[in-house]
């Protein structure tokens, strides 16, 4: 069975003899476009943003070589916990996605799926020069050059590699953005969904996953 057949509708016989049909595209995935989620009343939203900025849950997934700079953040020397930054192992619970360094097209697919499964408001921090212009991989055949053509980025941190201090300062910048109410990446993604999807499909050859993943 190839990858594509996996997602096709089929009839399955259970061990106890019961026969039923499975339609993976319908049952495992959502068939709805992402929608713009309106902020609450401005005063309430200000309070929420204050809480959001003090509780940043990072998806614990390193997408590139930059992720080697993330573990030191949990150590006594840098200690990101004092800024209210914590690691979460599942995209459902995480609010911040750190794209750490170069992004291979193969990884981009997984990044898109993980990002779409996160619940809004969600933020993206792009780490290292590779996410800005491709960095040292600018002419590689299988890495993307500019990340915000594919998913909305809130904060870029330059460097190759950025030191843990730089990442901490990136968190502080993200907090400022959230408090100012400017970190609306999830809504931007929903508004310009077609543009983002077209860009994604341009680089991902043989698109074999559902368009909507939440």
């Amino acid at each position: 069975m190839t990858r594509m057949d996996d997602l096709k509708k089929r009839t399955v016989t259970a061990p106890d003899g019961e026969v039923f049909t499975v339609d993976p595209m319908k049952e495992y995935f959502c068939d709805k476009r992402p929608e713009v989620q309106e902020p609450a009343h401005p005063l309430l939203e200000k309070f929420f943003n204050w809480a959001r900025s003090n509780s940043l849950w990072v998806l614990g997934w390193g997408t590139g070589c930059g992720s080697i700079e993330l573990p030191p953040l949990t150590t006594p020397r840098f200690d990101m916990f004092r800024y209210g930054v914590q690691m979460r192992p599942t995209p459902r619970q995480a609010g911040v996605f750190i794209i750490s360094g170069y992004l291979a097209v193969k990884t981009l697919k997984r990044v898109i799926r993980a990002y779409e499964q996160m619940q809004g408001p969600k933020y993206i921090i792009a780490l290292g020069s590779c996410t800005i212009n491709g960095g040292m991989y600018y002419d590689s055949f299988n890495t993307i050059n500019r990340l915000d053509h594919y998913i909305p980025v809130d904060v870029y941190i330059t460097g190759c590699m950025p030191r843990p201090e730089a990442i901490l300062s990136g968190f502080v910048e993200l907090k400022k953005r959230i408090r100012a109410g400017k970190a609306e990446g999830a809504n931007d993604y929903a508004e310009r969904f077609d543009w983002y999807k077209a860009n994604q499909k341009k680089v991902i050859k043989g698109w074999d996953m559902p368009d909507y993943n939440w």
Binding site: A40, F48, A51, W57, Q119
Partner: peptide
């Protein structure tokens, strides 16, 4: 407190 308020204030 922050964590609980944040989670309750998620939009989706």
């Amino acid at each position: 407190y922050f964590d609980i308020i944040k989670n309750l204030a998620k939009r989706s």
